[in-house]
Computed example of a mutant assay.
Amino acid sequence: MPNSSFHSFANTLRERLAEPLPGPEAHLKMASRSRLRMAMQPNERTRRSAVLIVFYPYQGSIFLPLILRPQYDGVHAGQMAFPGGRMERTDESLIRTALREAQEEVGIRVTDVKVLGKLTEIYIPPSNFYVQPVVGILPYRPDFYPDPREVEHVVEVGLDELLDETIIGENGIEVRGTLIDAPFYQIQGFKVWGATAMMISELLTVIQSVPK
């Protein structure tokens, strides 16, 4: 992809992110049935966190990375996600949280990331986190150095693949011995569901008219 085309995409995306966001309406398209039934809201114990959605040019197209969480004793073990994590006291903003976590988890050089804007914050009841998705770009394909404690695998996903509606499915997803009825994106053999799928839904709604 010529640099001019990628920068045109980035500039248009930045403009779209500055407009009113689709938010919950887009989230609902990929929300699990259990989430809809519970309708849980943030509370006094809810913690703030952020993830980084970063686009980069690669193989004549536009890509972004997802990560596979390793198996561990936690509610998000073995799930697909964007790089990110909880806000620390030393973080001056949630944008800083997203950048720091991406650097720690997959080795992205955050000084090269240009932040375009933010998507709508989303609440994750199982972990009681309120998550801020931050959207940015890199002018090149990064070298990934995943932290094995946090990341089992990095999956590079093309924007064209995300925009293909045939990757959307819905059936029972087993999570820690429980079947969850949830929509998902089938991406390179992985089911991307839950909050990450809801973020992707809003992201795609925002960029549908952005030239690629």
Rank of each mutant, 00 (worst) to 15 (best):
P70A: 10
V157K: 11
F82A: 01
M198Q: 15
P125F: 06
S34H: 08
F63W: 15
E121Q: 14
G172P: 01
S201A: 13
R35T: 07
R48P: 00
D143Y: 11
E105M: 11
P139Q: 10
Y56D: 04
E156W: 03
R48E: 15
P57N: 05
K118M: 13
L99W: 10
Y123V: 07
F129Q: 15
I180E: 14
R16P: 00
A10H: 13
D143R: 14
Y58P: 00
Q59I: 00
G74P: 04
E88I: 01
Y130T: 00
F82G: 00
L68F: 01
G107Y: 06
L21G: 02
P139C: 11
P65N: 08
P126K: 01
T111H: 14
G194V: 04
Y130V: 03
V206F: 10
H7G: 00
Y56H: 14
S8V: 06
V51S: 01
H76F: 01
N43R: 12
N43Y: 05
Y140E: 13
A31Y: 02
L99S: 13
V192L: 10
S61E: 14
N3M: 13
E121W: 03
R45H: 14
I53H: 02
M87C: 11
Y185M: 04
R89T: 07
Y72R: 05
R14V: 00
K191C: 04
R47C: 00
H7Q: 15
E25Y: 02
M199F: 05
L52P: 05
K114P: 01
I200T: 08
K29R: 15
A195R: 03
G136S: 07
D181S: 12
I95V: 14
S93D: 03
F184V: 03
F63P: 01
P42K: 04
L36P: 00
T120L: 09
L36V: 12
Q59P: 00
D147S: 04
G172E: 06
M30Q: 09
N11C: 06
P22K: 09
L66D: 10
T111Y: 12
Q132P: 03
G60C: 09
F190I: 04
Y58W: 11
I137P: 10
I168Y: 04
P42N: 07
E104M: 05
S201M: 02
P24C: 00
V157A: 08
Y130H: 12
E101V: 01
E19R: 15
L94S: 07
K191F: 00
Q41V: 14
R47H: 09
Y185R: 06
D73G: 02
G194I: 06
S34T: 13
G169Q: 05
Y145M: 08
T46N: 09
R176W: 08
S34C: 08
L66G: 06
V175D: 07
E170R: 13
A77V: 02
S61D: 14
F144M: 06
F144G: 07
R16N: 11
E92T: 14
F190R: 09
G74K: 03
I137C: 12
A50R: 11
A31T: 04
E170F: 02
